[in-house]
């Protein structure tokens, strides 16, 4: 078994946190894990991408080869499109937020970006931001997207919930509840 995830977003969206959460759940389930991310200048409001590889055998490359990703989990729709060449033609799925972050002038037309995602063979697109806001914290949009992808992962939803609790416990009960709710709402929408 191997499962490769590209987590794509913009600096500050919490993409790396989701990567850590999934990785911890995978380790707990006894899988091997390799995770690759980039720090430094590229993080300042620019693109942030993490590669997460899960397998039941020794993983070699720390990054996912092109055509080998099972899932692009995108916290921003334009960023979803950026990594399409990494997605497996036969089994790749894009789970993306609907909300663009238009923080540069050359950003294409939003409708065009969304239409491009909807042209893909396998996609799930959701307004994670609104769902998260209704769940109690707009910042939980990343966890909502994780929920929407939960049934695709080789992990039990309960083990992800457990990791969410652990991860946010230092930030207080309200934060844990909002994130769990956002996760469950994401699952209800798609990943149940």
């Amino acid at each position: 078994m191997n499962y490769n995830i590209i987590l794509a977003g913009v600096g500050g969206q919490g993409g790396l946190s989701v990567s850590v959460l999934i990785a911890n759940a995978a380790l707990t389930a006894g899988f091997q894990v390799k995770q690759s991310e980039v720090h430094g200048m590229s993080q300042r409001g620019g693109e942030v991408v993490a590669h997460l590889r899960i397998a039941d055998y020794e993983i070699q490359s720390p990054t996912i080869p092109k055509g080998a990703a099972d899932l692009i989990l995108a916290f921003e729709p334009l960023e979803a499109l950026r990594y399409l060449p990494w997605l497996s033609a036969s089994r790749g799925m894009v789970v993306s937020s609907l909300t663009p972050i238009r923080n540069f002038s050359a950003y294409p037309d939003t409708a065009e970006v969304v239409a491009e995602i909807k042209n893909l063979p396998n996609y799930r697109i959701l307004d994670a931001e609104t769902i998260a806001r209704q769940a109690g914290n707009v910042k939980a949009a990343n966890i909502c997207l994780l929920g929407a992808a939960a049934d695709l992962l080789p992990l039990k939803a309960d083990s992800l919930r457990k990791q969410i609790e652990l991860y946010f416990s230092a930030k207080g009960e309200a934060m844990v509840m909002a994130n769990l709710k956002a996760f469950d709402e994401g699952r209800n929408k798609y990943g149940a």
Binding site: K66, G67, L84, P85, L87, A89, S90, L120
Partner: peptide
Amino acid sequence: PLEALAAS
């Protein structure tokens, strides 16, 4: 190359 989706 592995079979990948086309670029956007």
